[in-house]
Design a protein around this nucleic acid. Sequence first.
DNA 1: GTTCACCGTGAACGTCGTTCACTATGCTGG
DNA 2: CCAGCATAGTGAACGACGTTCACGGTGAAC
Lengths: 248, 248
Amino acid sequence: MTSVNPVSAESSQPTRRERAHAATRVEILQAARRLLIEGGAERVTVRGIAAEVGMTAPALYRYFGGREELLGALCSSLYDELADVLYEARDRDPGAPLKQRFLVTSFAFRQWALEHRPEFGLLFGAPIPGVLVDIHIDPDPAADRGMRFGQVWLELFAELWRQHPVPVPHADELDPRLREQLTEYHEQIGRIVPIGAVVLYLSCWIQLYGAVATEAFGHLNFALHDGDATALFDDLMRELAAKLGLTH
Amino acid sequence: MTSVNPVSAESSQPTRRERAHAATRVEILQAARRLLIEGGAERVTVRGIAAEVGMTAPALYRYFGGREELLGALCSSLYDELADVLYEARDRDPGAPLKQRFLVTSFAFRQWALEHRPEFGLLFGAPIPGVLVDIHIDPDPAADRGMRFGQVWLELFAELWRQHPVPVPHADELDPRLREQLTEYHEQIGRIVPIGAVVLYLSCWIQLYGAVATEAFGHLNFALHDGDATALFDDLMRELAAKLGLTH
DNA sequence: GTTCACCGTGAACGTCGTTCACTATGCTGG
DNA sequence: CCAGCATAGTGAACGACGTTCACGGTGAAC
């Protein structure tokens, strides 16, 4: 099962076979994504993918341990793509004020979610029993591609907060339970902002998630008949900017 | 298929057979829920349910049109249960100040979500292609059990806002797109609050959804390693109360 | 007491994930 | 250059899935 080749044990140049293997892996993931877009995670079927890439189903087991592992790899690659999209949005206009870059990045997140609803659902919906678990359990932090996604927001937020340090509760004023829970993460990110700002960061993430997920999942359709929450999202982002002390 | 009995066409007392039929339906839904809890929507299988209620798979087609329709009915019954839970929380202490009753209800929502994650995921996660669609498309508003769930919050919010009318933008100040989109819903709920308050209501729902869903789906685990966001939720609800002008 | 609607079964079809024995291919070490 | 071998891919098979259909049995209705 994907045994390590003695020739290129770690980081030396990949052999011909390894390149072909990796190429087939991405081809498989592309086919999987096509099926995901067509009909949700349910349609991502081993046999379907195999047909798409011109193989029979058992051949896929040379590349992935099974359907769940394949879905996990698909999640990873999607997290990566999303992180790239966000980085691109953030750095699109490096001279612009940070507030604007933050808003542009937030809008890019929403846009990606709406243009890729099945993918967004896979990454940010209810976890599928055997899939996402494996990812977040991965001991190697670099292997958790979701981390890269979170990193975008963290960098942006930290830069924003340090340039515009809206008052946050001191560590002593924080709920002791919350302070204790967040200490590990706080250290993990190198204490780039005070722990009170981490709470603010999480509350921003929650608000952004809520705004994007409710729209992408259709949980606003009861009120917004056409399902387009653009105007509402604008409102919410203004509110979020105000919470960050970014009054214009 | 479930033809109307000439004896009890509409609302007269149900015949013996009809009662048995209805009883079997709920028994089936209970079995389906047991499987849902065991292993998510994926495990809710026609054959599995049939075995659970002591029948063979084809027999279930006397009660439901198929797996998707069965999942839809399960959603409806879960929405109903959740609405009951919320109503109970709201009316637990009718003499308490509205702010407290609002917070108690919000906490009840979170608690139900955390104690019934698979059910919550089915109702509030990414929509399953063939399932939730049918529900929200139902022309009979009384048949959409999700409406009953939304009604709890709407009643609570309206009562709260009228007792404590925090300033909201006038209709003229609202984004024209948003105003036009919300007009239909505004009429539908009988204009019990001004349309600007509807925007506030939606933003509250989004914030509550974000707080509960991120925790229930594990989308806070990157920072809260134990996954318990109680303290953070407290914070967020305080913030939400402040947005409603409920400073204590 | 006959008729008939309804409940439930068993067999069957096509699809699913997965395993296994097997073959072909192409790289590798002597 | 050739023997050896890891790897890629196939076809058959197993059990489980959703769904359909023809069939028998049971209880209510006239």
